[in-house]
């Protein structure tokens, strides 16, 4: 699933981040979430959502060609990954993380954030 957002609906609750980390890292640990919420307070009182739009820049940066595109989604092939972590710095949205086992992780398009967002601020991109 490719994501899109409507930031004006976001209330900053971070449910997306909690379920993302739980589903993808198997832990209650939002620092492992693959999207970010930034509140801009006190002025102007808005939320910014950083998320993976499957731009593929991480794949372009990978010296091992370990990030592979399929049906518009990019996924890491951990058999090929050499843990160089170059992709982490390449992400223009800063939404890739280093896992406990020191591998990179990126949005898998699982859609859990879309499913649980109480505000429908994170959505499936229908194209």
């Amino acid at each position: 699933m490719k994501l899109t957002v409507k930031e004006e609906r976001c209330s900053g609750c971070n449910v997306c981040r909690v379920v993302c980390a739980l589903h993808n890292a198997g832990a209650v640990q939002p620092s492992q979430a693959l999207l970010k919420i930034k509140g801009e307070f006190p002025d102007p009182g808005t939320y910014k959502i950083a998320y993976c739009n499957q731009c593929g820049i991480c794949a372009d940066s990978c010296p091992e060609d370990a990030i592979l595109e399929r049906d518009g989604e990019y996924n890491i092939d951990y058999e090929l990954c050499t843990q160089c972590l170059i992709c982490i710095d390449s992400c223009p949205f800063d939404v890739m993380v280093v896992t406990e086992s020191e591998y990179p992780a990126k949005c898998t398009g699982c859609g859990k954030c879309v499913e649980l967002c109480p505000r429908q601020a994170v959505l499936a991109d229908q194209g």
Partner: peptide, 16 residues
Amino acid sequence: VTDKGCFGCPTPCGKY
């Protein structure tokens, strides 16, 4: 300006 929720909240009271 925006609804502002606490952590984990589906029903934000915060009316910023």
